[in-house]
Amino acid sequence: MYPKVWSDEKVNFLETPELLEQPKYAARSAIVFWLDKKLYISADKGVEGKYIDEVSTVINRYDKPSFSNRRGFVQEAAKIFK
Rank of each mutant, 00 (worst) to 15 (best):
K50N: 03
I52K: 01
Y40A: 10
Y62F: 12
S56H: 09
L20G: 01
L35R: 08
W6V: 12
D63K: 07
R70C: 08
E18V: 07
A43Q: 04
N12H: 07
D53L: 00
K4F: 06
K82G: 12
K4R: 09
K45P: 04
V11K: 08
S42L: 05
R28W: 06
A27H: 14
D36Y: 05
K50E: 10
E18N: 12
V11H: 08
T16S: 15
L19V: 07
S29N: 15
A27K: 15
Y40S: 13
Q22N: 15
V5K: 04
D44L: 13
F81R: 10
T16G: 02
I80W: 08
K64C: 00
G49P: 01
Y25V: 04
A26R: 12
E48F: 05
Y2S: 07
P65F: 00
V58D: 08
P17R: 03
R71Y: 05
K50D: 03
E15D: 07
W6M: 12
K82N: 14
E48M: 09
A30P: 00
S42I: 03
Y51T: 00
K37E: 15
L19R: 09
Q75G: 04
L20S: 03
E48S: 11
N60I: 02
G49W: 02
K4L: 07
K79T: 11
D63T: 00
Y40E: 11
A77M: 10
E54Y: 05
Q75K: 11
M1R: 10
V32M: 06
V58H: 08
D44F: 09
F73I: 15
Y51E: 03
D63P: 00
F73Y: 15
Q75V: 06
E15F: 01
K45L: 10
E15L: 10
N12S: 06
K82R: 14
S56K: 06
L39G: 04
S7W: 04
I80D: 11
D53I: 01
D44G: 15
P23G: 05
L35V: 09
F13I: 01
I41T: 14
S68D: 09
V5T: 05
E9V: 14
L39D: 04
R61T: 05
N60M: 07
S29I: 03
D36W: 01
Q22F: 15
E48Q: 14
A27G: 09
E18T: 12
P65M: 01
F81I: 10
K4I: 00
V11I: 14
S42D: 13
K82A: 13
W34C: 01
A77T: 09
R70V: 14
P23A: 08
D53W: 00
L20E: 04
W6H: 12
K24Y: 14
G72D: 06
L39Q: 03
V32R: 04
Q75S: 08
S68I: 07
I52D: 00
A26W: 06
V5F: 12
D36C: 00
K50R: 13
F67D: 00
I80C: 12
G72C: 06
A27R: 15
E54H: 08
N60C: 09
V32N: 10
A27F: 14
A30W: 07
Q75P: 02
K45D: 05
A77R: 13
F33R: 02
K64V: 09
L39F: 03
D63F: 05
V11Q: 06
W6N: 14
R28V: 02
S7Y: 07
E18L: 11
